[in-house]
């Protein structure tokens, strides 16, 4: 894909850094105790209510098979088809991302991660929020 310069919210989950387009990132939240949903996959940590809305929290580490520590912070994505919170160990802030945006994998969650790209001297995987959302809707 073509190289572009766009504002992204850069955050880490486990040891990996991710970047989501700033316009998709609604806010960074600190989520309360989650409610587990029976029969839900393990990367779906649970849901929490946020401004009258039920937000599911997805653990990117479990989704990508990465190791990660526990965190209470998440990046809330607001998409056309609904909201979604992604766990974030650290949030670096809004940065301009440069680099290629080729899919990092052929299947699974990695087809919705692109790169290689850099943001604020970090190697980041640029996320396709809609693709990820669809992937999750189909059961992960």
């Amino acid at each position: 894909m073509s190289e572009q310069l766009q504002s992204h919210l850069v955050f880490s989950s486990g040891n990996s850094w991710y970047a989501v387009p700033a316009d998709r990132a609604a806010e960074v939240v600190s989520f309360p105790e989650l409610t587990r949903v029976p029969g839900a996959p393990s990367h779906l940590l649970g849901v929490f209510a946020h401004r009258g809305e039920v937000i599911p929290v997805v653990d990117l580490c479990q989704l990508t098979g990465d190791k990660g520590g526990e965190t209470k912070r998440a990046v809330l994505l607001r998409l056309a088809r609904g909201a979604l919170a992604l766990t974030a160990s650290k949030v670096a802030g809004v940065s301009l991302v440069s680099g290629k945006l080729d899919p990092l994998g052929a299947g699974g969650v990695h087809q919705h991660l692109r790169g290689p790209a850099k943001a604020a001297a970090n190697d980041v995987a640029v996320m396709d929020p809609e693709g990820l959302f669809e992937f999750l809707c189909q059961g992960g």
Partner: peptide, 21 residues
Amino acid sequence: LLPSPRVLVGGAGGSLRGFLS
């Protein structure tokens, strides 16, 4: 009854109707 997020629709064998606060 709060509606179920889309990623959870059809969860628990389709028995999940939504959430309650």
